[in-house]
Design a protein around this nucleic acid. Structure first.
Lengths: 221, 221
DNA sequence: ACCTGAACACCGTTCAAGT
DNA sequence: ACCTGAACACCGTTCAAGT
């Protein structure tokens, strides 16, 4: 989101002394950042390689030193997205004393907000790129980071007796599907108009979790 | 899915006598079909207008007689997809005597299977096109057909006492989000490997509905 | 090692003609 | 009314050079 104009002074990072490709500072990361901002501003269709290179201040050809093709750049952007999403989820779990209900609600809110803040990125992350598992193993593993977070929350809730016993995988998948579906439908403006505003979304998330808990709750409360 | 080669005899449909644009038979529909098959075979990236025209047997320029631009063709394809999905859901509801549980399970299976059979189309339908509501009002209304079906099932279940009382909208949204999220995650191969095969998907759908029903069920059984 | 300019095939779109 | 061929700007990718 910061301006990307001419950087007057040459950047002298510590990395520049470590044999990694530099010359431009760190072109690989500069290209990823340029791609992210283009994606946010113009959507997936507006993200073309030559424009990315232009924005990064290099010739339309320089990206091929760092990415085999356009898809490889898209993969790098998606991978960064998965990591960012998982990181935000992790940050939201700072307080382990919270109840499972609170933790699930917080995670759902974080997930939905991430989608609403980066709709084009979110679509790109789930646009079929991950299907090429073998070609992009690090993308594949990054795409599983969020699920891991959810799994831990559910397991913790189970061990505390707040969630019903049994395999943690299935309730986690149900929760993930629910939150992912809500996020995507919100991004696409598919939900009725009366839940478009932020306050309603907040309320909606709470209602979703309540409904879900009555399903996976231990029925003890 | 049928072959699209040279059609030796000129088609003489009843429509051809009704003043609609023909000359080619029905170019507009031919273009939509060609686009659908291209989308299925090569994905969204492989769907370019010139290739669509080639496959329909006309010059690269002919499509502009029927669609303002490429996006308009994409919109038509997405709209057909929404209608097809809603139609399949409707067909699956033929037997109104089924319990709410059975109906919801069936709908979920139909939705998931539609996604698995047409993954690229499904992604295209939810790729942000609907956001241009005012430009494409018929796409917008088609995108709401499925929700309408779900709403009816939930309302029916409520009136029979099989689902808990209250506003039908919220439980319907929860159900839709759940099924939509499951479908998209399955398409993206984001779920653990042990549920990739069809039999497991079938079981998974049933488990999802069970979990959800314990949330929106009337707690009488 | 990294970057550049020219070049190629191809796409979306427009325009002046053709029937 | 509908279709065509030529043309334009632009993109992804490759290649031969430059430092």
């Amino acid at each position: 989101m910061e301006e990307m104009g001419q950087d007057p002074a040459k950047v002298e990072t510590a990395q520049a002394k470590q044999g990694k490709p530099y010359h431009h500072g760190d072109l690989r990361n500069a290209l990823i950042k340029a791609g992210q901002s283009l994606l946010a501003e113009e959507g997936l269709a507006g993200l073309d390689l030559r424009k990315v290179a232009r924005r990064a201040g290099v010739s339309h050809n320089a990206p091929y030193r760092h990415f085999a093709d356009k898809q490889a750049l898209l993969v790098a952007i998606a991978e960064a997205g998965f990591k960012e999403l998982a990181g935000q989820i992790q940050q939201s779990r700072q307080n382990p004393d919270n109840t499972a209900r609170t933790q699930l609600t917080t995670i759902a809110r974080v997930y939905v907000e991430f989608g609403q803040e980066h709709p084009a990125l979110m679509r790109e992350m789930f646009s079929g790129l991950v299907l090429e598992r073998k070609a992009y193993p690090s993308l594949y593993s990054a795409s599983k980071l969020a699920f891991q977070q959810l799994l831990e929350v559910v397991e913790q809730g189970q061990s505390r007796g707040e969630l019903s016993e049994g395999s943690a995988e299935r309730p986690t998948l149900v929760f993930w599907s629910l939150v992912h579906g809500l996020t995507m439908l919100l991004i696409e403006n598919q939900l009725p108009d009366n839940i478009s505003n932020p306050a309603s979304v907040e309320r909606l998330v709470e209602e979703y979790v309540t409904t879900l808990l009555q399903g996976i709750g231990s029925h003890r409360s």
